[in-house]
Design a binder for these strands. Structure first.
Lengths: 147, 147
DNA sequence: GTGTCTGCAAAGAATTTGCAAATCA
DNA sequence: TGATTTGCAAATTCTTTGCAGACAC
């Protein structure tokens, strides 16, 4: 659950990016922000339908689009034909679990630094690098539960 | 243009993966192999329609699916809701041009080595890494033409 | 007030599915 | 011959669009 104070930040952020502050937008942005699931439009819609019964799926699509246009959220690069969204701003990477199809955030300043410094010294011909994300493929493994 | 000998390899490869060798499959796999564009199903369909006038788009979808199931090709992770395919086997990464939406292959053994050795020493909790791809975002820049 | 945003429903893409006929092994 | 694969068309799924009324500023 998000604290009220975060909703204040959401409102300010929308406003600062020239987007009118509507309950729908606050709810949608808030949901993506708090979600660790990298939700699809449908999932966001399902999540906020409980608190915003009247909301329409079209609005969710439009809003996710506006938010990603303004850079408040990002479209996650997946190999499937469905779009998923991510609201984290810091550089981070994604673990793709091939078994469960889950996408898990992965952050490590060391990795960040490692790749960034690679690009600093290595210039790619005819291409100006503005950022990067690492897709890490593999499988989630269960730790032995202590029964 | 692919040499006839590569078509032989395609046939053997299909066969070795338990897929029956049909003209359609050979054409589709061949097209993805030779394409540097990371084509969509529609693009493959358009490309091979000239040489295989009767082919159906549904077949292209089914075949791309079979091929990627067998690991002969891969679905490229993009941020858009359209699937694109890649037939390269060696580890390689992708440059995403934000201006033209083009996807360009990028290979560098040094980068490969850099990240691989990172994962060797750094274990991620509850996750077994089987591979990785780096998405490099930025813009293609024109080299000054010598006018 | 005025321009933007929402909800709805319809349209449009992209992809999948079912099945009879054709094809490969 | 028998199992797979194809082509076709219909069905689904995902996403976008247009527009009238509602809302934010």
């Amino acid at each position: 659950m998000l604290t009220p104070d975060i909703y204040t930040q959401i409102r300010e952020s929308l406003s600062a990016h020239g987007l009118k502050v509507t309950p729908q937008r606050v709810a949608i942005y808030g949901d993506v922000l708090q979600s660790i699931e990298h939700p699809t439009a449908e999932q966001v819609f399902a999540n906020i339908s409980t608190t915003h019964p009247g909301i329409s799926l079209g609005t969710v699509y439009k809003t996710l689009d506006s938010l990603s246009e303004k850079g408040l959220i990002k479209k996650v690069k997946t190999g499937a034909g469905i779009q998923r969204f991510d609201a984290r701003h810091e550089n981070h990477h994604h673990l793709f679990c091939q078994k469960t199809q889950k996408i898990i955030d992965y952050t490590d300043p060391e990795l960040e630094q490692l790749i960034a410094s690679y690009f600093q010294k290595k210039k790619i011909q005819n291409f100006e690098v503005s950022g990067f994300e690492l897709n890490i493929n593999g499988e989630q493994i269960k730790t032995q539960p202590n029964n």
